[in-house]
């Protein structure tokens, strides 16, 4: 592990256990203690490799989000066939009245 960046540009601090627990919660993943330890080490290793990128001064460089110069495309507003509703619902874990059924979202009514 190289830790921080070579001089100058601010490099983020190394990833720690608490960061891994935090991002796992954001990503809706539950980790065991053992997994937190293992993932922390592995992610730290990958991020240390990325220190070369994190340390660059790229202030004058525009970001590229996509390889193509994307532009808005218009098309005639025509009715076209769409997916079969029953076929789509057949793939769902639970269905009720032609809708996806999920567990309770809000708490019990008062």
């Amino acid at each position: 592990m190289t830790g921080g960046a070579p001089d100058g540009h601010a490099s983020p601090p190394p990833i720690g256990r608490e960061d891994v627990v935090h991002v796992a919660r954001l990503a809706r993943l539950e980790l065991t203690d053992e997994e937190v330890g293992r993932f922390t080490g592995q992610l730290a290793q990958v991020l240390a490799h990325a220190a070369d990128v994190a340390a660059l001064d790229l202030a004058g460089v525009a970001p590229t989000a996509h390889p193509l110069p994307l532009q808005n495309v218009l098309r005639p507003d025509e009715i076209r066939p769409c997916l079969d509703r029953q076929e789509v619902l057949d793939g769902a874990p639970e269905v009720e009245d032609h809708r996806f059924r999920v567990p309770r979202i809000v708490g019990d009514a008062p």
Partner: peptide, 22 residues
Amino acid sequence: MLGTYALSAGYYDAYYGKAQRV
């Protein structure tokens, strides 16, 4: 988790933003 971290507040500029410029 790596992607969530690279996009998360406080790290976005250092990681994802830099990577897009690269």
